[in-house]
């Protein structure tokens, strides 16, 4: 598999898996409007994932035109195994409470926003087009999740404590965003620049939210979980895929 295919799948998997996690809130949101908000974000992410999967499928089929079963967006989402997924560990973690869900969304949206700002000028036209299209949606997600982090962090004692707990749960999963996998290195993304900007932006919001700042995500200074980008996932990933892929596994090729 060439780097461009692997990288496209990585972008698709991030969006699909977080979209799947957020969709678990459907019907369970703290209030109706926020239930609708988180599932709208889910829809945007799954739409972005589709665009990346369609592109990955066309690249795969182009490089192997003789395959008996050509790749499609569906086969890539529903028929790959855990080890073939290249998403960040952060996005596959269970939702936890609302605090943990919005904090993760904030960490991820801030990262995606900075990443897509660069990718919209990618030499690869289709990656650039998907990034430029998605960034309009991501800017909504970023604003929405930033506001929630501040609202809860600087809210009641209960909401503040829950945000602190979410920080402790999630921070060790943020370092993976900035540690390029082999296939990322060829994509001319300046991950050091993204990391620096991400730390600055996140720090601003956390300060306003009166949350305890964790040590910067420097390698070596604090332990960071990694592996997802190369297919080594947490125990949660298999369970997530079991639900996500259930229909195609139970009734192969079914359509409705």
């Amino acid at each position: 598999m060439n780097s461009l295919i692997a990288y496209t799948l990585h972008l698709a998997d991030n969006a699909l898996i977080l979209g799947q996690r957020n969709s678990e809130w459907c019907g369970h949101g703290p209030v109706l409007e926020q239930d609708i908000a988180i599932t709208n974000i889910s829809l945007d992410l799954i739409g972005q994932a589709r665009n990346f999967y369609q592109y990955a499928a066309s690249l795969i089929n182009h490089s192997d035109g003789t395959a008996a079963n050509p790749a499609s967006e569906d086969s890539l989402a529903y028929l790959r195994t855990e080890r073939e997924f290249k998403n960040l560990l952060l996005v596959e973690l269970p939702n936890g409470d609302w605090a943990q869900t919005v904090l993760r969304q904030f960490f991820f949206s801030q990262y995606q926003y900075l990443l897509f700002q660069q990718l919209q000028f990618s030499k690869d036209e289709q990656i650039a087009a998907i990034a430029a299209k998605s960034i309009k949606e991501v800017s909504y997600h970023l604003r929405w999740s930033s506001e929630w982090v501040i609202r809860l962090g600087d809210g009641t004692r209960e909401s503040h404590d829950r945000m602190e707990k979410a920080m402790n749960e999630l921070w060790a999963y943020t370092g993976e965003m900035f540690e390029p996998a082999g296939y990322e290195k060829e994509m001319a993304v300046e991950s050091e620049k993204i990391k620096k900007e991400w730390n600055e932006k996140v720090r601003q919001v956390l300060e306003e939210a009166t949350l305890t700042l964790q040590p910067a995500s420097e390698k070596g200074s604090v332990f960071m979980h990694t592996g997802g980008k190369n297919g080594i996932h947490t125990e949660y990933m298999g369970h997530l895929l079991t639900e996500l892929q259930y229909m195609q596994r139970a009734y192969p090729g079914c359509e409705w």
Partner: peptide, 8 residues
């Protein structure tokens, strides 16, 4: 061209 990426 799609409106939103995920518009069904």
């Amino acid at each position: 061209t799609p409106t939103y990426s995920g518009c069904p």
